[in-house]
């Protein structure tokens, strides 16, 4: 199931690695190096999923998540974090993140979560009225 994914991370190496892994799985991947760039991209292009790092200079992951969710309520967002605190995860989930990823990622876990996020975003589980977006 292909899909369009936007990867947001200030570290180029992570960005590229994610891009490569996801592209090899057949996803159409774009990248952004900060929250502001991600929001700008999401304005002009459609994405099925955004994977954003949590700790970034400028706008951090939670702010990016909130901004994206506000503009595109149906957009699925996964938050990646290097420091796995359940407090941060809780915060992201309550702000509408679909799931969270702990660095360092396991490729299988990453791909499974990505696949599920895109599937959840596409097919409302109980028909069109059951889901708000």
């Amino acid at each position: 199931m292909p899909g369009r994914i936007l990867v947001v991370d200030d570290e180029e190496d992570i960005r590229e690695a994610l891009e490569m892994i996801l592209a090899l799985e057949g996803y159409d991947v774009r990248t952004a190096d900060c929250g502001a760039a991600a929001i700008a991209r999401a304005e002009v292009e459609h994405f099925d999923l955004v994977i954003t790092d949590l700790k970034m200079p400028g706008m951090d992951g939670v702010e990016t998540l909130m901004a994206l969710k506000q503009r595109h309520p149906c957009l699925q967002v996964i938050v990646a974090t290097g420091y796995a605190s359940s407090e941060t995860a809780r915060r992201c989930m309550s702000e509408g993140a679909h799931d969270y990823l702990k660095k360092p990622f396991d490729m299988d876990e990453l791909l499974r979560i990505v696949e599920r996020a895109i599937a959840d975003g596409r097919v409302p589980p109980d028909g069109p009225s059951a889901q708000r977006c």
């Binding site: 190496d13 992570i14 994610l18 990646a80 420091y83 490729m107």
Partner: peptide, 21 residues
Amino acid sequence: VAGLCHELNNPLAAIRMNAQL
């Protein structure tokens, strides 16, 4: 430990993903 976690996990993520790739 919290700080180290982050500082270490970021490079580890890059290493790991590339290695798995």
